[in-house]
Design a protein around this nucleic acid. Sequence first.
DNA 1: CATATATGATTGCATAGCTAACGATTTTTA
DNA 2: TAAAAATCGTTAGCTATGCAATCATATATG
Lengths: 164, 164
Amino acid sequence: MIDANTAHRWLTIIVALLIIMIYIGSMFDHCLYFNTTALARQLEGEWAKAFEPFDLTPPQAFLLRAILDQPGLMQYELANALTISRPTATRALDGLKAKGLIERRNSERDGREQAIFPTAPAIAMHTSLNEASVQVGKRLKKLLGADVFADTVTKIRGVRAALK
Amino acid sequence: MIDANTAHRWLTIIVALLIIMIYIGSMFDHCLYFNTTALARQLEGEWAKAFEPFDLTPPQAFLLRAILDQPGLMQYELANALTISRPTATRALDGLKAKGLIERRNSERDGREQAIFPTAPAIAMHTSLNEASVQVGKRLKKLLGADVFADTVTKIRGVRAALK
DNA sequence: CATATATGATTGCATAGCTAACGATTTTTA
DNA sequence: TAAAAATCGTTAGCTATGCAATCATATATG
């Protein structure tokens, strides 16, 4: 049997440890929004480095990659593919247009629509742009482990689908 | 033994199915960056609804919650806690100040620093703000399943830590 | 102790995202 | 067929974010 003094000392220590454990973690550690937005900013930085040689920001580069992959999509189709709003697509395309990387063509069947095509300089970037992207993916998979990487993406896609 | 014609027909069908499978998924389905930024935008919308009654955007509300949780932190400590840059913190705090929710006090020990405190109106919001946040968490856990929710957050935190 | 360096907050400038509203065009409906 | 509703792209106006540079204050160094 332990005496009352010993019991009290131990209790004090345990309570102190619990308090420390609570304070070590920060308030939003278990918040999906907080962690998702924070990760998004971190990844933005990683991809920005990869696309810097092309003078493209990550959103611009991903948009251009989609255009190179499927030339001739309408603007609203691109907006859907990238899950951005149409106004955001308009401005991102304005940016690529200003760099001479895309052109807009009036749709023949519907006067409201604009089909988007890559220009020759953009097509010339196609391979190296995809190669740079593959390299980032490889680097992250190596850093995190390929299984963790894939699991994380799957989990995130699951949440996205559930929220839709 | 099957004849050459049958074999050819089957091969054609299989190849066609593979091509369809590739096209059903979109180009960035397995991209961590793409899915993370997309999820961040979706969650932004969810939390925006929750904080609308308080006339706060999600970034403002999370900042205010941190201030209410630990009054008197320096600006750079808040920036670190929220993993945003100091300029972003300055501007977010300007916003809360304009709404009369926080005040800046000069640090006594270091003339460069500013300690941030909630005002009385902000303190009056403390409970209901936290309650609204808990409700969002509960709703998402119900929608996704508590285990999926927790797993997703854990995975994302793992990636964040690995990238740091 | 004087000067150089580092740090905290701010400001300037840029990008990316959203909603609301509008003009042009197409489709639906009465 | 005329009017109403829907759709596509754009514009206006807002927020959030970052980097680079600046100012003021502390700290380190010679």
